[in-house]
Structure formats: C-alpha cells, structure tokens
C-alpha cells in the first residue's frame, strides 16, 4: 500500500466527527446523570456511605426472622403461585392462535399483521402495575383481576418471543408440503408445529418465572397474593416478619427458576 503524505492532508486514525460524537454523547450522559442525582438526591457517594446502614438493618431488624409467621406466609405464597400458574396457562392458550396472525411468514395480510404488532408493542411497554390497577378498577378487588392483568401482559410477551421464532423457521419443509398438495392446516400441523412446539413450551416456562416475580406486586393494589402481607407488615414496621417473607419468597422463586431452567435446557 502506498500512502501519499502531503502537508495539507493529515492522516487521522478516526474521523474528527467521531471525537465530536464521543464527547457529545459522554457529556449528554453526564449532564442527565447530574440532573437525575439532583432530583433524587442519590449521589454515588451517598449510596456507598449508606452501606453500613444496610448491614445493621439486616442484622438488627430483619434478623432473626419471625418463624411463627411461617404458616401465614406459605398460605399467601400458594395464592401467589396459583395466580402465576393460572395466568400463564390462560396466556398460553390465548397466545397460541394469535401467534399465527402476528408472524409475517404465515400472515401476509399487512393490515391485521401491522395492527397486531402495534397492540402487542403497547401492551408490552406498559408497566404491568398499570394493567393491574386498571383491572382492579374495572373488574373489582380480588385475585381474578390479578390473573386477568398478568394474562394479558404475558400473552403479549409470549407472542413477541415466539413469533420471532416462527419467522425464523426452516421454510423448506413447508415448501415441500405445499408442493405435495398439503393445505394450510396441514402445513401448520406438519411443517410449523414440529419446529416451534419446543420453543413455545420453553417460552411458557420463562413467562411463568416472570409472572411469579410480577405477582408479588398484585397484593399492593388488592389483586391477591403475598403482596398484601408485605404491605401490612411494612406499615406495622414488623421487619422480622418482612425478613421471613423476603427469605421464603427468594427460596420459592429460586426453586421454581431452577426447575424451569432445567426443563428449558432439555427442551432446546
């Protein structure tokens, strides 16, 4: 390679615009951070200096947990799990037919495809607490509202995750089935389902994990489950009981996550 070196054109490693961009982005990030800290009064220094408080809190207030409270916690934990399980199941049933409308390989109708996409994006971007509050307001207090809210939210996640897999399936067998005279239901049954069923099951389990964590929130707004215990014990400053709740929840979620991830790794 021959490089002419003239005095007028300096050879630069990066274009000048790269440095301008780099400085601009860094400055933007820092200014926003400065504003956010002013708003929340949470500088890094203050955060780090608060650590001793946390340890004292953990040792003096949360420990030892009030084990006498265990039966009540387990009772509410079962309701939390029920809500997660039922809403995930309903979501899986609801999402399945919609899946085929929301993947461009199978639904070539631009209007219904685009419409589905927009609705899904909006449902997913709304924080799930908003959906829960809405359901409690419209349907009423109780676990049914919680189940409905989680169902809608997790159906949207399921469709999003799985329709991406549907769009990336191997189309060659589908082409073969069509060429041999198979109709659309047969194409779906023999060409599409064998390819996506394991992925779909895996996503259902993943959504169950998410729902279990999300269903903790429900009790705070009267939609059932362990959240109502947390709220009550918080207002009573019973940190020994809160310690137990957190501990039991952490254990339960870890166990479910472990089971789910084991099954999922075997499905793939």
């Amino acid at each position: 390679m021959k490089r002419k070196k003239t005095s007028s054109s300096k050879v630069r490693l990066f274009k000048p615009s790269f440095y301008i961009k780099l400085i601009g982005v860094s400055a933007g990030v820092l200014v926003l951070y400065y504003l956010a800290i002013r708003q929340t009064n949470a500088s890094l220094a203050r955060m780090l200096s608060a650590f001793p408080i946390f340890f004292r809190m953990l040792i003096e207030d949360f420990f030892p947990p009030d084990f006498g409270y265990f039966p009540t916690v387990v009772n509410q934990l079962i309701e939390t799990f029920n809500i997660a399980l039922i809403s995930t199941t309903l979501a899986a049933v609801l999402a399945f037919p919609l899946l085929f409308f929301s993947s461009s390989t199978l639904n070539r109708h631009p209007l219904s495809y685009g419409g589905m996409r927009v609705v899904l994006t909006i449902v997913r971007s709304i924080p799930n607490i908003i959906m829960v509050v809405l359901m409690v307001a419209v349907v009423g207090l109780g676990s049914v509202s919680g189940i409905l809210a989680l169902m809608i939210y997790s159906a949207a996640i399921l469709i999003k995750l799985t329709s991406e897999s549907v769009e990336s399936i191997d189309e060659r067998p589908i082409q073969a089935i069509k060429a041999m005279g198979g109709n659309t239901p047969q194409v779906i049954r023999y060409g599409v389902l064998p390819q996506i069923t394991p992925i779909y099951l895996s996503h259902i389990l993943y959504v169950l994990e998410i729902n279990l964590k999300a269903s903790v929130v429900l009790g705070f707004v009267g939609a059932g489950g362990i959240g109502q215990l947390i709220r009550r014990q918080m207002s009573l400053f019973r940190y020994d009981r809160l310690g137990l709740i957190i501990f039991v929840l952490f254990l339960a979620i870890s166990v479910i996550d472990y089971i789910s991830q084991t099954v999922r790794s075997r499905l793939a």
Partner: peptide
C-alpha cells in the same frame, strides 16, 4: 431471582 419490589421494601 429477587423481584424489584423486595429490594424496594428493604431499602
């Protein structure tokens, strides 16, 4: 595996 709400409760 800890929901954000539990961190909220603690802090």
């Amino acid at each position: 595996s800890i929901p954000e709400l539990l961190f909220g409760v603690f802090f």
